[in-house]
Structures are given as C-alpha cells and as structure tokens.
Simulated assay, not measured.
Amino acid sequence: MSRGAANTEAVWPALLRRAAHMGIGPESFWRLSLKEWRDLTGAGAPAVIARDRLEDLMRRWPDDRASSQIEKTPMKGQK
C-alpha cells in the first residue's frame, strides 16, 4: 500500500466522527456527495484575503502585458 493510500484511510474515522458530532449518521454520511460534505463543513469555502494584500499581489503580478507597466512596489517591510 502506498503512503498516500494509508493517509487517506486514516482520514475516514476522523470524518465519520465529525459527521457524528454534526448529528449525521453513518448511512447518511455515506450518501453525501463531496459537494454536500464540503457545504456542511465549510471545507469548500473560499479563502479570504485582505483587500490590501490582494491589491499588492495584483501590482506585483499583473495578469496581462498592458498592466505590467504598473509600478511593482515592494511589500510592506521589504526593500
């Protein structure tokens, strides 16, 4: 058995315990789709980034050539 498979198998008991704490029985747990599970647990929630951090990233790594002329300023605390 590969290391990845062993890691995956170790996750199932934790997922079942989490479902039990949420009041979801084993039969219902196994009927859930991955999307439903992520919706229930918040695992599919997008990561949140602060506005100033997003703007900094946009300045440093523009999406297209036209916007690459934007001044690339260092991040706070960098020279």
Rank of each mutant, 00 (worst) to 15 (best):
H21I: 09
K35P: 01
A47S: 08
S67E: 12
Q78A: 06
S67G: 09
W37E: 03
E9A: 14
S28I: 05
A10E: 10
V48A: 10
L57F: 05
T41A: 05
R3S: 13
R38Y: 12
E27W: 02
L32S: 01
L54S: 04
V11E: 10
M75L: 15
I70E: 08
W37P: 03
P26Q: 14
L15S: 01
D56F: 12
R60M: 07
T73V: 13
R51N: 05
T41S: 09
V11C: 06
W30Q: 07
A19Y: 01
R59L: 07
A45I: 10
R51T: 08
K79C: 01
R3Y: 12
R17W: 08
R51L: 09
K72G: 02
D63A: 13
T73R: 07
I49Y: 08
D56H: 13
M58C: 06
L34I: 15
K35I: 08
W30H: 09
E71F: 11
G23V: 03
G42L: 04
L16Y: 02
D64W: 05
R3F: 14
R17M: 10
R38E: 14
A19I: 02
L32T: 03
S28R: 11
A19W: 01
S68Q: 10
S67K: 10
M58A: 10
R3I: 14
M58I: 11
R38P: 02
P62L: 04
R3L: 15
P26D: 12
G77N: 02
S67I: 03
A10D: 07
N7K: 15
I24L: 06
P13H: 08
K35T: 10
E71M: 11
I70L: 11
P26R: 15
P26E: 14
A6W: 04
H21S: 12
S33R: 11
M22T: 03
Q69P: 00
L57S: 01
M75D: 13
W30V: 12
I24Y: 00
R17S: 11
R51I: 07
T73K: 06
Q69V: 13
M22L: 15
N7W: 09
G77R: 01
L15W: 07
Q78P: 00
D63R: 14
S2T: 13
N7L: 14
P13K: 09
A14F: 12
S2K: 08
M22A: 08
M1Q: 04
R31V: 00
V48H: 08
A19D: 02
G42Q: 05
N7I: 13
W37T: 03
A43F: 12
W61G: 01
L40H: 03
H21Q: 14
W61T: 14
R65M: 11
A43N: 09
P74T: 00
L57R: 10
R53M: 07
E36C: 04
D39C: 07
G42V: 06
A66S: 04
K35H: 07
E9T: 12
Q78L: 08
A5T: 07
V48I: 13
S67H: 12
G25H: 08
S28W: 02
P62Q: 02
K76N: 01
S2P: 13
M22I: 03
A43D: 13
K35Y: 03
W12I: 14
G25F: 06
W12F: 12
A66W: 04
P13C: 08
T8P: 01
A19G: 01
A10M: 11
K35N: 05
L34M: 12
A50Q: 15
A5E: 04
G23K: 03
